[in-house]
Computed example of a mutant assay.
Amino acid sequence: MQNALFVGVSSQVALQRELDVIANNMANLSTTGFKARNTRFEEYLMPVASADSFQAPDRRVSYVVDQGTTLDLSQGPIEQTGNPLNVAVKGPAFIAVQAAGGERYTRNGALELNAQGQIVTSDGYPVVGEGGPIAINSQETGLAIGPDGTVSTNLGIRGRIKLVTFPDPRRLTNEGGNLYASRDPARPAGRDGRLEPGALERSNVQPVLEMTRLMDVNRSYTTVSSVIARLDDLRGTAIRRLADIA
């Protein structure tokens, strides 16, 4: 009976984790360049719970183990905006930006010019150029960003946005502010990443699928809670009957 309770609790913990992931996905339906996450669970067979010497050997107890989340790298919808500072990242690439903790990475192509003339994201993070920060003088005109990240004005090329990729982008970790961090060294995207000027990549979260997942997880959580409640009642009944016999 105790094993059944422990299995139920492990299931509840896993389902709660999945609810948190789904809620975060839904909260970022309108976040530019957001990539959804999916939970990964694994069965763990408790090796200690066995007694093979009995006529009916004990079954191994199966628990649920949270193996973390993976990044869904599918391309989000591309929306044309006509804004020369908007770029949609295409392919498994990321824009490098400078954050407080060092270089970080984003798919947020809603770029702006700050008071110093630097190209920054909509959250204010300076975009990293291959040759250093990219700054535009207030007198310059004809700002344009090319598919390879080249930034040019009427004065010529002003820099190139640093586009990077990773051996396994699914291992990137979220840091808030639509930023990702990586333990693996970034490498130049090359042909793996291009920019579509005058457009934005929207979130790749699919609301219908997420709502379906949410209902399934809620039902499963309710079912497990009911089983645990019945097991608790059964244990209480057993204790009372044993007390009566004593």
Rank of each mutant, 00 (worst) to 15 (best):
S203L: 09
R37P: 01
P188E: 14
M1C: 08
A115G: 08
A144G: 00
N86H: 14
N3G: 02
R202V: 10
E112R: 14
G193C: 15
I157C: 01
Q2L: 13
L200F: 11
T69Y: 13
D148W: 05
Q12M: 13
N178Q: 06
Q16P: 03
G176T: 14
R187I: 12
F166V: 07
T237H: 14
A49H: 03
A229E: 14
A4S: 04
E210P: 00
N25D: 04
Q116F: 07
S53C: 07
Q80A: 12
A238S: 13
E210T: 07
S226M: 12
K90V: 14
D168Q: 07
G132E: 05
D244I: 10
F41H: 00
V217A: 01
I119R: 03
N28W: 04
P84M: 02
T153G: 01
L19V: 09
Q98N: 11
T69W: 12
R191A: 15
V89G: 07
K35R: 06
A96M: 10
N24D: 05
D232N: 11
E210F: 13
T237Q: 13
Y63I: 00
R171I: 06
V217W: 03
E112N: 09
E42I: 02
A96E: 12
T222F: 15
V205C: 06
K35P: 02
D192A: 15
G117W: 07
L195E: 08
N86V: 11
N24T: 07
I22T: 06
S53M: 10
T39N: 05
A88R: 06
E43Q: 01
Q139V: 12
V164E: 11
R219H: 06
G129T: 06
G33T: 04
L29F: 02
D66N: 12
R59M: 04
